[in-house]
Every structure is written in C-alpha cells, then in structure tokens.
Design a binder for these strands. Structure first.
Length: 566
RNA sequence: GCGCCAGUAGCUCAGUUGGAUAGAGCAUCGGAUUUCUAAUCCGAUGGUCGGGGGUUCGACUCCCUCCUGGCGCGCCA
C-alpha cells in the first residue's frame, strides 16, 4: 500500500538531498508524540556527506519544503526535519482504503505466483496432543494465514511422527500386554500407557529394547502383521488429533508423515553416496559435517534402520519436486536447531540451491513449573483439557457479565479458545513460556478476549446505529487527536503483516492488535460515537466500521474467531 | 568443554533497518458506570536496559569480554 503522504515528502526532499525518493522514504522515522508531528527526516547521514552540521542541514532542507494538499507543515527540530501531514486528508485516505478493501484490507499480492510450504504441528502418533503442541500448531497456522494474505500460495503440511523405533516399541508393548479393550474407548491413552510401561520395564530389562527395535525393523521390511498394527495405531491417533484441530479451527492441505518417505530414502541415500557425501563410520552410514563444525548426519544406523535425519532430507527433496517453493518453513521447537542446520547444510552440499530458502521457524519451549514439558516422560497436560477448561471459564464469565447472550456455547468457545491461542501468539515465538493456568485462562489485560471485546464493542455501536455505513460521510469532521491516532494505526496494518511474514513472527500481528485496541478503548471512553449531530455520527461510524474491519482481519490472521457479542 | 539462544519495572513482556525524555499488561494504591457491553478506562508508585570495555554525532539495539539462565552436542524425535 503506497502512502501518498510519505511519497510527497520523499518527492519534495529528493532534489534538495540528492537522494532517490525511495531512499528518503526509507529513512523517514516516526517522531515522538509530543512534537505533534508525523514523520521525521533525520539529517545525520547527510551531515557526513555534505560535511555540515545536521541542524544546519535540517534548516536548509526546510527552505525547500512546500506545504500543500498533503503536507501541512514542516518544522526544524534540532537535527530533524519534522513533517505534519494534513490530518483530515490522512484520515479520509486511511478510512477510504479500509472501506474499499474490506476483508482484504492489509493484504497485498507481493507473493503472487510463489509458493510457501509451512510444516507445522507434526505430532507423534499414539500420543495425545499436549499443551506444548499448541505452539507449533498455532504459530504455523497463523503463518499460513499471513503468507496467504500476501498473495502466496501456501501448502500447509502436518508432518506426522509416525515412523521410528518408538513404534517398534509400541508394537512390542501391544503384543505383550494389549487386549481387545486397548483399542477401544480412549485408545490413545491406552496405547500411551503401554508405551510408558514398556519404557519403564526396559530400564530393568534392557533386552526389551531389542524387541522394540526388531519390531520396527519388521515394519520397515513391510511385514504384514507389523504394517497392520501400525495402520491401526495411526488411524486411531488421527481421529483423536482431528477433534482438537476442529476446536482450534486448524486445517492442513497435506497430511504427510515420516512413514511416507520410507520408500524414497534408498534413492536419497544413493544420491548422497554417488556425490561422495556418505561414508561408513563405526558401522553407521553418515554425512561428515566436521568441516562445518557439526556432528555428522546419521543416514543409517549400524543395525540398518534409518533415522529422522534421512527422512527429513528425503522429504525436502520431494517437496521441492512437488512445489518449487519460494520458501519452506519448519515450525519446530528450538531444541532441534542443530538438526535443521545439519539438514540444510547437507542439502546445500548436495548442490540444491533451494536449500537456502529453507528456514527453521523455531520457538521456545513450554515449561511446567520450571520442568521441561514434552512427551517422553509422560508428564503432559493434554491440550484438549486446557481448551475445555478455557471454554468453561469463558462460559462462567458470560453467565456473570452477559447472561442474556444468545449463542452462549459458540461464544464461550470463541472466547475461551481465543484466550489460549492469543496467549501463545502474543510474545515473540523464541521466548520460552512457563505453563501457567492463570495466564492462559486470563481474560483481562493483554489477552485475546481483550481484543475480541474491542471488536464486540465496535459491533455493538454499529448495531445500535442501525443504519448502513455512509460511504459519503464527511470525514473532515473527525478532528479529535485520538481519531487521527487511530487512522495512523489503521494505515500501518499492511506493513505489520509484511513484518510478520519476513520474520515468520505472528506476534507482530498480536502486538499490533493490542496497540490498536488500546487506542480504541481510550477513544471509546473519551468520545461518544452516537450523538445528536448526524453528520459527525456518520463520520465516526466510518471510523468505527474501519476499526472493526481491521481488528477482524487481524484476528483471522491469528486463527481466532471474531464474535459480535460476548 | 564446545556451539546456539536469552538477560529491559516486583512479575510477564513491547521497543521497526542504530535515532529525540525506554513503553504496556499483571500486581499495589487512588479514581471513573443516569451515557455506544466496566472482559473497559484514567491517575500514582515502580528502571545503573545483567556487569565492564569499545565503535559513533548518537547504543536497549552493533563488536569484544565476563557473569547468570536455558537448549543442543553420532546411531531418540
């Protein structure tokens, strides 16, 4: 979205500074609010080349600025040249853009014709989704929306952990202790219990591990019994995952998994061997990465079975063949940083130019009272349980604050789940987070419900107004400083989305929404929208409608719902 | 030991490519509702931006070093 105010400043300054207009535009900064100005041109860089004091340059440049339709005035402030835009014009421009573009406001087509692959969620089968899975799932889900908003074709992949020795262990355990009842009722929990029991007993009796490995070998070799068991486990797990994905509103374009690459791995290994990159070391087939100061990639264990390194390499090759992506994002926890460096480096060594388009979108881990929270030790809080609890809390809040609300259940789900999702997306993804019921279920302050509540209030005003939004309203009546501040925030939306995409960082959007809703809440308390003054009301309604639209667009990017009442 | 990441208010965090007097939420205290939903708002309290050097007109931001915490380091994923 081109900002004509910035363009005008750039156009006027280009001559006197000797810079290209877009160079000027890029060096503009936002001055502090107290200056009552909107854009600042800092003169430090020019001071070097022109060998003058920055303050002198600012004064000199000020002579060349001609206020006009777009720019109200320019004022020297020390080494800065501060511009004040024509506020009425700016507000009209910003609101008009939102009115025209509606649900696509903030979007662009800069990614048109290019594909982004996003791999996320990626749970292991035969286990429940734990709270920690929310991180990959919702960060990845938000990224698919964000890239889609910028015009990219997005391929979202759920890459299931459905292969590996762990399933050999599971089969061995099932064959030992499993009954018909195991696969009924809460089958995933039953299977997981067997898995945990097996690991415990294996501590006493290490020979059990060999049984597990043997079963996995049978699976890799296509043994009918092993395959049948594995397929059963997988189907049971998928059905269970789907319930949670439905609650969260997450959809995948491709349901894939490590098992799929079992057949492609021999070819991948053959290519690596042909390139002279693979060698035998201590009985295992490895790719030596010592020149890159990394431990080797293990392609094949000494017992002949493969590991996930090999499967990830094969999967990457396959996806390139299928999608020719401009970017491929792996939304996986930060503890796997080394793994992805190894994989990307290996792909690079194989001569794949596209390896540099692969990014590991890492995120901090979820702790539970200081302890690492992930599946292996069995100490997990189930994601479904957290969501259910959040919905219950939201329902209680509704009963207390708005008992007459229609659609209580749907709203409770939107608000409760929204709280959990927003809580996960509001901070930079690389931060570790301590699992805290109070924080996750909080509906006050910087939370999802806070943003949804702002949306609800906006909807409520529009409902009470009861007339169509007037496209011809006289926006020059919007003269309050808060109205201008809101318009400026609205105008930022597209650059926020771009920043979120560049850094694969959904928190850029959540932080923006908090800021926007904060500005609105202040405005809401200070100024009344529905007044006796019809033209003023019509103009403010335009502002309200624009805010509603942008907040809704932002929430959708995060994968959250936008209730109209709560 | 080596590598990577982090350290900002009592707690949890923002802080655009280095820019003007470092901002929010929670907590604490004090206020606001005959008015568009108080899941809200306003005010107060609260800071050696981990320590020390350096780069520069200017550093929370970049470099070096030290301290603290986390993660990772060949047959788990």
């Amino acid at each position: 979205m081109k900002n004509p105010f910035v363009e005008e400043i750039a156009r006027q300054l280009a001559g006197p500074t000797g810079l290209a207009p877009d160079q000027v535009a890029r060096s503009l900064s936002i001055p502090p609010a107290e200056t009552q100005t909107d854009y600042a041109f800092p003169c430090f860089a020019l001071a070097k080349t022109k060998r003058l004091k920055p303050t002198e340059i600012a004064q000199e440049l000020a002579q060349h600025v001609h206020p006009g339709e777009w720019i109200e005035s320019a004022a020297v402030n020390g080494p800065y040249l501060n511009f004040r835009v024509a506020r009425g014009k700016f507000i009209a421009w910003a609101l008009e853009r939102v009115r025209e573009e509606k649900t696509s406001y903030g979007c662009s087509d800069e990614g048109a014709g290019r594909t982004v692959v996003v791999e996320f969620s990626s749970p292991n089968i035969a286990k429940h989704l734990g709270v920690h899975h929310i991180r990959s799932t919702m960060i990845g889900n938000a990224l698919t929306h964000i890239f889609t908003a910028l015009g990219y074709k997005v391929v979202s992949i759920n890459f299931l952990g459905d292969w590996g020795t762990q399933f050999g262990i599971l089969m061995a355990a099932y064959r030992k202790w499993g009954t018909a009842a195991t696969l009924e009722g809460d089958a995933v929990s039953n299977l997981n219990a067997l898995y945990v029991r097996f690991n415990q007993e294996a501590k006493e009796n290490p020979a059990l591990r060999d049984e597990g490995r043997a079963w996995f070998k049978r699976l890799e070799d296509g043994d009918a019994e092993a395959v049948a068991l594995w397929e059963q486990f997988r189907a049971i797990s998928l059905a269970e995952f789907q319930k949670v994905y439905d609650l969260l509103g997450v959809k995948f374009e491709v349901l894939s998994g490590e098992s799929l690459y079992d057949k492609l791995m021999p070819a991948t290994i053959a290519r690596l061997e042909k390139l002279g990159l693979a060698k035998i070391d201590q009985g295992a087939l490895i790719v030596d990465l010592s020149t890159h100061k990394m431990p080797p990639v293990i392609l094949r264990k000494s017992d002949g079975a493969t590991l996930y390194d090999t499967r990830d390499i094969a999967a990457a090759e396959d996806r390139w063949e299928k999608y020719h992506f401009a970017r491929m994002a792996y939304v996986v926890g930060g503890e796997q940083k080394l793994h992805f460096r190894q994989i990307f480096t290996t792909l690079q060594m194989m001569g794949y130019d596209w390896a540099k388009e692969c990014v590991h979108v890492d995120f901090g881990m979820l702790r539970f009272q200081g302890a690492k929270m992930s599946g292996r030790q069995g100490q997990v809080v189930m994601l479904r349980q957290v969501l259910t609890e959040a919905i219950d809390r939201a329902r209680q809040a509704i009963d207390q604050k708005n008992p007459a609300l229609p659609n209580k259940e749907a709203v409770a789900a939107a608000v409760g789940i929204g709280a959990v999702v927003f809580n996960d997306l509001k901070r930079q993804r690389s931060k570790d987070v301590d699992f805290d019921w109070d924080a996750i279920l909080s509906f006050e302050g910087e939370t999802g419900p806070y943003v949804q509540y702002a949306h609800v209030r906006l909807c409520s005003i529009l409902r009470k107004y009861g007339q169509p939004v007037d496209a011809a309203a006289d926006l020059s009546l919007l003269t309050e400083p808060e109205e201008f501040a809101l318009a400026k925030a609205l105008a930022d939306f597209n650059s926020v989305i771009r920043r979120a995409a560049d850094g694969c960082e959904p928190s850029a959007v959540s932080q923006y929404l908090l800021e926007l809703c904060g500005l609105f809440s202040t405005y809401y308390h200070k100024h009344k929208v529905l007044t006796e003054d019809a033209p003023l009301t019509a103009a403010r309604i335009r502002l309200v409608d624009s805010l509603r639209q942008v907040i809704a667009n932002g929430l959708r990017l995060l994968g959250m719902q936008t209730p109209e009442e709560m």
